[in-house]
Amino acid sequence: MVSSISLSIDSDLDKVSLLARAVRALCEDLLSPDDQDAVELSLVEAINNVIKHGYHGERGKDVQVAVGLQADQVVIEIIDHAPPMPPQVLDSTSEDAFTFDETDIANIPEGGMGLALIRMNMDEVEYRSSESENRLRMVKRIVPLS
């Protein structure tokens, strides 16, 4: 079974939940509830990043999501036409975001967690930029029911 679908929204934070719910529904029969949570969170974080940091909150720009449902994995690609993510953002490792001292309230992070969460929740994450577009590819493997 291989099928794919493309969805798109305007770069408006109010519309992200529509896409998230749609993609979650597509994964319902393939992934466990925990893995559906993981995919939904990763998708939301990725799109928020595109809208907030890529398009700087400007509406009217396009955000496309391609979902591929394969026999052994779900592949989600987020495609945008914003300036690419800076390399230093991509280089930071996912653990860094959450190694804070919980007794030092003033320094507990309020942001910068998105990419780290995506890396923790997906099995593969790859970011590619070309002249025409940026593409974040995220893969969640399907764990067969035992």
Binding site: A20, E40, V44, A106, I108, P109, E110, G111, M113
Partner: peptide, 15 residues
């Protein structure tokens, strides 16, 4: 559902 922006808002309230 809460995303990292929502969580960040909670942290901001705590501060």
């Amino acid at each position: 559902f809460i995303d990292s922006s929502g969580l960040g808002a909670l942290v901001s309230c705590l501060k």
